[in-house]
Design a protein around this nucleic acid. Structure first.
Lengths: 197, 197, 197, 197
DNA sequence: CAGTAAACGAGACGGTACGTCCCGTCTTATG
DNA sequence: CATAAGACGGGACGTACCGTCTCGTTTACTG
């Protein structure tokens, strides 16, 4: 019995890999609406039949294809909450500027708005993206740098709120000045004294 | 004189109205992706030919249909920046909870991300939604309640950032407690002393 | 009062003429199926409205446009039935080879098959085309060259039958040899002794 | 091995059959101009897509639908050319009076006049309709009843010319008297002595 | 290492939507 | 009041994908 999860037919593995790769490609290029089984099949060389055999619906395929998206970068450890938050925020800003998922997120948000199947996907992705802030927050709390009535969610919101708003709603550039100010304000919110400047 | 731009054929007026109404209906129900010329034609009773006569493309139709969306509510005038902002923020939160445009916005953001034709639409809509904050900010500045280095955009961002983030990204409820805190924080950011409560 | 048939508005006359001309053009180019009010309007510069004012239906317009088609050539008078028939047959063969109506007739026959409105048109055209044979036949009968139990219809059929069959059904060339033979055979049928050659 | 060209997908066979049947129906009802892919699809229950998959164009569909039309009746064998020709001519006259193809032929002739794609169709149909005359002629020639300088085409023309002319051009009834006379005349043309009367 | 069960490709199928074209009717405004 | 201009509903066009389905053929695992 031993191997059971692994003993997948080689062909299956190959097909799934090819399909997921192309789905991801289409996803980042055209958002959720840009992914069609037809096109995935055409590009991957995997027959439509096969795709539907492995994923019961387009949504299922999208969910799996998104599961690799936006995998969190290393959590920084500068020694201070202040430093960690700055590093994390700059990283997030950078990703919002250039990462593939930044182009795709709105379409996922939209999908989550009306297809329950995809709402979970949105939640997962969001959790994954925000996880590092949680880690940093916990660490800071443990060190006594963060008030106990301020949790990870507050930290996340304090940073992501302004950044996301600027990226997708006001559509102004996410320049260094702006990012610095976001960090400063966030620290203020959270009742943390910036170490210096 | 007088009539010139108005003297549009009655039939044209009727057709356009019917089409726009149904487009709006479909839009709020299924987002941008849920609007198809075929369905609009079917529901409005206006022939597809006629629709294409008035709007060269689906995008053009969407733009016009969205132009009525999210028309700003009356700007409150409570006498203080504090009061105005509170009223405005509560109103925005309420709309985010229930207004039709709140369901549609993500699909517009997504569209703006890849169809330049629709990016303008997004900008317009955003401006319309945020206009009241600008009015209130200007008024406050005139009254000396708001520092001169803080403009309308700052006010808007301070409120909309958290609200939007919560509505579409963290997907937690926009309850009264949260809204109150947003206002409080915003005032803090803006360097305004809350009057009392 | 007085003049009443003539006192047609100049504009009416001009419009009708332009419309009929273009209808005829389209008719000879594409048969009955090739005539559309839309196209006639476009080419003639006369508004569709105007066309429908003057002709209640497409059929009516076609009928009038066809009334000029295939106007009979001069009836030959060589002095003998033999000679007349030869001349007439050669003329008919020539027209079948090149005249505009030869291209159009099948579509008229087809139309006559299912649209009663156009059946009359077919009858008229046919009568017009065949009239000369009638004249020649009568003349021959008067001269005693043609048996009294053979009338114009017999003469017409004896010549047109083979010619038409060849033109539209067997689709072989209407060459001189064939035409000569048709005349010879026809004379045989009709019980007329060819004079000599 | 046997089946090879036969082993067509059952579904394909069914679809094609349904489509051809309805095409034939529309064809006989309204001529070539009365056939629209849309209507064929609607009546046959076969999707438009599927129709276009099997036939690249309306013309191709018509060609195939016509290929079954006017399939020749049994060739009579009365023992004499005289008898055979009489039987065949009466049969043809009967068909011209009532057969479905008799209503359709003019539209095919018309189409052949301008659409090369359909000219072949006309030729095929004509050949099919006239084949029996060829058989009878050959048989008669073998028996010495028909002069060697008169071939099938002559026989065909001698009979079909008058019949077709009467059916579609003079539009007089194809009564028994007329048919008898056509046979008599044809035999005369062909230099055959009627056996008796 | 043979037999078998699965995985697979190819593609038929019924649909829906597309955007275009032309139809014949009807309304409006101009000359 | 004849006309030009053109809006309108309707229908067909041929194309592109969609997701479902039925095949016949590999091909990798297993007994």
């Amino acid at each position: 019995m031993a191997r059971s999860g692994d003993s997948v037919d080689v062909r299956v593995r190959r097909s799934k890999a090819a399909v997921l790769a192309q789905t991801y490609e289409l996803l980042t290029a055209g958002g959720i609406g840009g992914v069609s089984i037809e096109e995935v099949s055409r590009r991957s060389g995997v027959a439509k039949t096969t795709i539907y055999r492995h994923w019961p619906s387009r949504a299922a395929l999208l969910v799996e294809a998104c599961s690799t998206i936006g995998s969190a970068p290393a959590v920084p450890d500068t020694g201070s909450f202040d430093g960690d938050l700055t590093a994390l925020t700059e990283e997030l800003a950078e990703q919002l500027r250039s990462a593939r998922w930044a182009t795709v997120l709105p379409s996922i948000v939209d999908a989550a708005e009306r297809e329950p199947e995809l709402a979970g996907l949105h939640a997962d992705l969001h959790a994954r993206l925000m996880a590092p802030f949680g880690v940093v927050a916990e660490r800071a709390r443990a060190r006594g740098e963060l008030r106990t009535d301020r949790g990870p969610a507050d930290v996340t919101a304090a940073v992501a709120g302004p950044l996301f708003y600027r990226r997708w709603f006001s559509r102004e550039p996410l320049d260094a000045v702006f990012v610095a100010r976001v960090v400063e304000d966030a620290l203020g919110h959270l009742g943390v004294q910036p170490r210096s400047t």
